[in-house]
């Protein structure tokens, strides 16, 4: 059964280009809450700190919180891009991520070539790639533009193609960033239908978003992140209600000073 279990999950970003001592001191003095020096005297930003949660089959989880709270970092960690610095993470099930639609697109290649390339990125065989091509070609509705290099596409056309390619899958665990809510109104109706079926087909969905409307409509559970920590975790109404009522956050604990 698909599941995600995080136990003490921690991610720290090293800041390599603040070598100058004075700059380092200033940074540390200003933002002592999340920036600290580690044992080898590097400046690190605590992106995710000691997260514990279990997501089981059927759950639709929204990650909410202000900018820089760690939502996208958590998504990327779940996708296997960042490996945890501390703690443990177990993700059971086939992962499909809609994090950055444009990743791996080649602007000099035509739409069709980009679809095939995406198939290779996903490790598909020839039959799979042919199916992906047919599906994405129909859904994007780009017609003859499919054989034009994507460099010449309008912003809307690029999004159509990216969306069509990205959503042509049926993963057990769906990871989404909120990018896909951008797009022209005409396309959104079609896009929503497709997203709905994708979400329905997935055992688990995790979405990072600022839009409470989306959270209320799609999700069953919300995890609120602040400064890399989980500050609330529970049913959507409970978490969002507290956010809207403006419940003050517990004062963030300062980072351990080791340096």
């Amino acid at each position: 059964m698909a599941s995600i279990v995080a136990d003490g999950l921690t991610i720290e970003f090293p800041l390599y280009h603040v070598a100058a001592r004075s700059l380092k001191k200033r940074l540390l003095a200003k933002a002592a809450l999340r920036v600290r020096t580690d044992e080898s005297n590097r400046v690190v930003v605590a992106a995710l700190r000691d997260l514990n949660f279990t997501i089981g089959r059927g759950e639709r989880v929204a990650l909410v919180g202000s900018n820089g709270a760690g939502k996208t970092t958590l998504l990327r960690t779940l996708a296997g891009i960042y490996e945890p610095v501390g703690g443990e993470l177990t993700v059971k099930g086939e992962i499909g991520s809609l994090i950055d639609p444009g990743a791996g697109m080649d602007p000099d290649s035509t739409g069709r070539e980009n679809i095939r390339l995406r198939g290779l990125y996903r490790g598909m065989d020839d039959a799979g790639i042919a199916a992906l091509e047919a599906d994405a070609a129909t859904f994007s509705g780009l017609g003859e533009f499919l054989d034009v290099p994507t460099r010449g596409y309008s912003a809307g056309m690029s999004i159509r193609l990216a969306f069509a390619m990205a959503t042509a899958m049926s993963p057990q665990i769906l990871l989404m960033d909120e990018w896909f809510m951008a797009g022209d109104a005409d396309f959104m109706g079609k896009a929503e239908e497709r997203l709905a079926s994708l979400v329905k087909g997935a055992d688990i969905m995790v979405i990072a978003t600022h839009d409470f409307g989306i959270v209320r409509r799609w999700c069953t559970r919300a995890i609120r992140l602040n400064a890399g920590r989980i500050v609330a975790d529970g049913p959507v109404e409970e978490v969002l209600g507290a956010m809207e009522a403006g419940t003050p956050l517990p004062a963030p604990e300062p980072a351990k000073a080791e340096g």
Binding site: M1, A2, T10, G80, E83, P84, V85, G86, G87, E88, L89, T90, V91, K92, G93, E94, I95, L120, G123, Q172
Partner: peptide
């Protein structure tokens, strides 16, 4: 059996993961 991604910072199994990276890269 579900494809499982497991990462444990206290037991990183670096050599095994590097081999898996190599195998996956060469096969694709």
């Amino acid at each position: 059996a579900l494809p499982t991604y497991h990462a444990d910072a206290s037991n990183p199994r670096r050599a095994a993961r590097a081999m898996a990276d190599l195998a996956a890269g060469l096969s694709s």
